[in-house]
Design a protein around this nucleic acid. Structure first.
Lengths: 187, 187
DNA sequence: CTGTGTCTCGCGGTTTTCGGACATGGCGGC
DNA sequence: GCCGCCATGTCCGAAAACCGCGAGACACAG
């Protein structure tokens, strides 16, 4: 329907401790999507929604990106912070996703805190929605948002992975900083 | 939402016996839109629909195009036949618009005939819609389609102009070829 | 009386669905 | 003849459904 020529992206596959992931980058090296291989269909849907038709050519993502991801999973938790990301989505969604990147590794926020951070304290549930529509998992750390009572509530890649990621980050940072923030239920 | 850079077109204005027209051409010289100045808003809407954001820079269309249009209004009715046109729209719409160009000047088809020509004899009404959504008036001769009983029924540029165009074409071709095709009510 | 569990309800953005309008014409009934 | 009905593709606006929530109400056990 839209006649604009499809955007051309590169599709890479990387093995991580939580399974193989799909990594989509553009010509500038910015990350456009990041998701687990077993949720490929979901990623395609999101890409189509944001960019219309996309043309994915299998290939290698820039080394800088690959290295950062490897470093993160190796324990260098801040390695992802410098990566450039680019997304479609509505203003609201982009605000949510931008706020996500300000949550430091090892910490967690509640959906309510996140809603407050973007200036819409009542849009708690909508924040959950936007969180679930995040096209760039892990790098945009939607897994660092948990229920107000500490339960994990949900994760597009499966709760098992959310649990793993949080444990991975907590173990490198230390068990607790005394503020109560960052606590979450491990089982 | 759409990230693709806007397409750049040239916007020319030409005076004709039926009023000033807007002529949009692309870098290849293909016509992208053609409409009467007093329906500028409609043209913009269609362009936006088909191409997302467009960037129109006032300027002169290729001489070949300008000359063909002048020749047509001067009485050389086939002058427009060779012009290259390019449109967006759905498959159905493009099929309709392509069929329109096969109607010779001086003839008229009914909406039913047109529907039959594209292989969807039942989509009579939809053909009317597609006709009304034609972004390239005159050159893609949507004015050569009339009701089954010869009434003009409608025209995006105003029935007055449809009447004028048909009279203009009929007068050059001859009053009637005896087939009954091409008849239409002049008042 | 405190803590914990379940239940209900309101919240708000996004997506999906639905219905209506329209540049018609052929058919069946009166 | 005149009237009413319906098929057909597309866009648009309205409405509803969907949820990765959270606060408050209540029941119950220690």
């Amino acid at each position: 329907m839209k006649k604009t020529q499809p955007e051309a992206f590169t599709l890479d596959r990387i093995v991580t401790p939580v399974g193989e992931v799909l990594l989509v980058t553009d010509a500038d090296g910015a990350v456009r999507a990041f998701d687990f291989t077993d949720y490929e269909a979901r990623m395609m849907t999101l890409l189509a929604r944001h960019y219309g038709r996309v043309q994915l050519t299998p290939g290698r993502a820039p080394e800088a990106v690959r290295n950062a991801i490897a470093a993160y999973f190796g324990g260098e938790l801040t390695a992802l912070d410098g990566l450039a990301v680019k997304t479609g989505g509505t203003d609201f969604q982009r605000a949510v996703w931008a706020a996500l990147r300000t949550i430091p590794a090892g910490r967690t926020w509640s959906y309510g805190q996140l809603a407050q951070a973007i200036g819409k304290p009542a849009a708690v549930r909508a924040v959950g929605l936007a969180n679930g529509a995040n096209p760039i998992g892990v790098i945009v750390p939607c897994h660092r948002v948990v229920g107000a009572n500490g339960t994990l509530t949900g994760y597009a890649g499966g709760l098992e992975r959310k649990r793993w990621l949080l444990a991975h980050e907590a173990s490198q940072v230390g068990p607790d900083d005394g503020t109560g923030q960052g606590a979450f239920a491990l089982d």
